[in-house]
């Protein structure tokens, strides 16, 4: 294995569809809840410790070899918004496509057959990490980072925020990313003994609520 594979997978330019999604930031900008770097940081911090932690845990568990079908059902239960479930599956399918071309693997082929319309993205991400020779912690880092890098990039476009400010926000969140990746890895390692409920289920009510609204907007820059 090469640790550098993590850089390929976590690169924002990895062609897996993320660029069209704001992680709820577009709705928060419209509602006046994100107006600059400080509120972007608050938004990202909240997202990191909720959906970010949940995604990181699912990814880590998948990377450790937990049954992807069980993990996908666990992801469904942790994603009450039907709009967000649809987004998670769409992104899972897009990631699957990019990953199969990048790191061909029998496990990815069989997951693609099991979920032709896409499994939840974090579950796919965990299996992609395996295919790339990466570990559970790497998968958790990747998921946790995506949970904040997506909104940060989107807000640069939505508010014409200074891109240096957005990068500084991500850098300030780094210690918390470490914590979340650690927690996710610990939770994932408990799955074989404690079952799927060992995985965190922390939710962000406003992300769930506003996702349903955003999905109905006739004019928007981002798909979610």
């Amino acid at each position: 294995m090469s640790r550098a594979a993590l850089l390929v997978l976590a690169d924002g330019r990895f062609p897996a569809g993320g660029h069209a999604h704001s992680g709820g930031a577009e709705a928060a900008v419209r509602a006046g809840r994100i107006t600059g770097a400080a509120s972007l940081e608050d938004f990202c911090r909240g997202r990191l410790h909720t959906t970010g932690l949940v995604s990181a845990s699912l990814a880590a568990a998948a990377a450790l070899g937990a049954d992807p079908v069980t993990l996908d059902a666990a992801a469904d239960a942790r994603t009450p918004s039907s709009a967000l479930r649809a987004v998670a599956r769409r992104l899972g399918r897009q990631l699957m496509r990019a990953a199969r071309a990048t790191w061909p693997s029998g496990e990815l082929d069989s997951l693609a057959r099991e979920f032709p319309k896409g499994a939840h993205q974090p579950v796919v991400l965990g299996l992609v990490a395996r295919a790339a020779g990466l570990g559970a912690q790497d998968a958790a880092y990747c998921a946790a980072y995506e949970s904040v890098s997506g909104p940060a990039t989107a807000v640069v476009r939505l508010l014409s925020l200074d891109p240096f400010d957005a990068s500084a926000v991500l850098a300030r969140l780094a210690p918390e990313l470490d914590l979340v990746a650690d927690r996710a890895g610990e939770a994932a390692r408990r799955v074989p003994s404690d079952g799927i409920e060992a995985l965190p289920a922390v939710s962000a009510p406003l992300l769930e609520i506003t996702a349903e609204d955003h999905a109905t907007w006739p004019v928007r820059l981002f798909a979610s």
Partner: peptide, 21 residues
């Protein structure tokens, strides 16, 4: 219709996954 996240060239050139779907 495919949504492009404010970057139409990305969706047809750099990350074509949504268009392929």
């Amino acid at each position: 219709a495919v949504e492009t996240g404010a970057c139409p060239h990305t969706a047809i050139r750099d990350d074509i996954s949504a268009n392929l779907e």
